[in-house]
């Protein structure tokens, strides 16, 4: 007990401190831009928003968009709740879980969607080339690495196993960061890995074999992630969010139509090797969330026990 109250006080102090700094928005004089802060994970998926800033889709609407990097959904969601971020990017499973836990989050637009092609998606399951595993059903009784457990990776991989006629509860998942996956696979510590681009390309390049496209197995138009904000924040400033949504939609459409531009912008905010950028499979960036695919994902989450009851998707989806 010695530690916990001290932690409690420290944490409360930290929370008070963050609560004291209100959103970074200043009064909007004529001609002046409204500063908006977005929380993003600097990975391939958020290329459209970087393109949107680059192409002026936000400044055209009077928005000065600042992109802040977060390490993952768990770090970004509190930022949205506290008002530090006006909106942010997260995968759909995290958003559904957050909503179920009582966080009033609501999606603005789609974020990233499966490329929809078996064997050529931006994420997949890989095994050693000489492995006995030929399909997802063969993963039964084996260990599979995912970057986060109880999230979109393992949920969709379980669906691949199920779709292939296997028993998903017989697959063991272990948490491993993407960059550590190739080594763990090669030393035989794990039997299979689930990875997304650019790591998927690196793994493919190393000669490992892709056995399943778990996003496609779940839904060919699977909405993997979305841009979202808090309900309170949205209600506070609906006009601003109408502009943000429009700018996001324009950015997504631009990214969808110009894959070369996506590859170009990736070189500016990531450290991905140029050759990998050229080769890797890009996701699709439709602006509309595919509601049906989110419903499928939500059903799987209930089946796998990530959430207890059927979530209220109408409240989450725009």
């Amino acid at each position: 007990m010695r530690l916990s109250p001290a932690l409690a006080v420290a944490a409360s102090a930290a929370l008070l401190a963050t609560a004291a700094c209100s959103p970074s928005e200043e009064g909007t004089n004529e001609g002046e831009l409204t500063t908006v802060t977005a929380g993003v994970i600097p990975i391939v998926d958020v290329a459209p928003i970087y393109l949107g800033v680059d192409q002026g889709f936000f400044s055209d609407r009077g928005i000065d968009l600042e992109l802040e990097s977060g390490s993952g959904g768990a770090a970004i969601v509190p930022g949205v709740i506290s008002g530090e971020f006006d909106f942010a990017f997260s995968n759909v499973v995290s958003l559904i879980v957050a909503r179920e836990q009582g966080l009033p989050l609501t999606a603005l637009t789609n974020g990233v969607t499966s490329a929809g092609e078996q064997g050529a998606d931006f994420g997949g399951v890989f095994v050693l080339d000489d492995s006995d595993v030929n399909g997802a059903a063969d993963l039964e009784g084996l260990t599979v690495a995912a970057n986060n457990l109880n999230n979109i990776g393992d949920t969709t991989v379980r669906q691949s196993v199920r779709a292939d006629g296997g028993d998903p509860t017989a697959v063991d998942f272990v948490e491993l960061p993407f960059p550590d996956m190739p080594a763990a696979l090669e030393t035989g510590q794990i039997d299979a890995v689930w990875a997304v681009e650019p790591f998927a390309s690196t793994i493919r390049e190393a000669g490992h074999r892709e056995i399943a496209s778990n996003f496609v197995d779940t839904h060919p138009d699977l909405s993997v992630a979305a841009y979202f904000t808090g309900e309170d924040r949205l209600a506070q400033d609906p006009e601003l969010f109408a502009d943000i949504t429009a700018a996001l939609e324009e950015s997504l459409a631009y990214a969808e139509d110009n894959p070369d531009e996506v590859r170009r912008i990736l070189g500016t905010y990531t450290e991905i090797d140029e050759q990998v950028i050229e080769q890797m499979v890009l996701p699709r960036f439709p602006a509309q969330i595919n509601d049906e695919s989110v419903q499928t994902l939500a059903d799987l989450m209930v089946t796998d026990g990530l959430i207890d009851s059927e979530p209220d998707l109408d409240a989450l989806l725009p």
Binding site: M1, S4, L7, G72, A74, S94, N150
Partner: peptide, 23 residues
């Protein structure tokens, strides 16, 4: 895991347990 799934009371409960173990 609790932190990532927004199970905040559970996350605190884990930290309390760590504190007790330390004590």
């Amino acid at each position: 895991q609790f932190q990532r799934t927004f199970a905040i009371p559970e996350m605190w409960a884990g930290m309390v347990l760590l504190g007790i173990i330390g004590f």
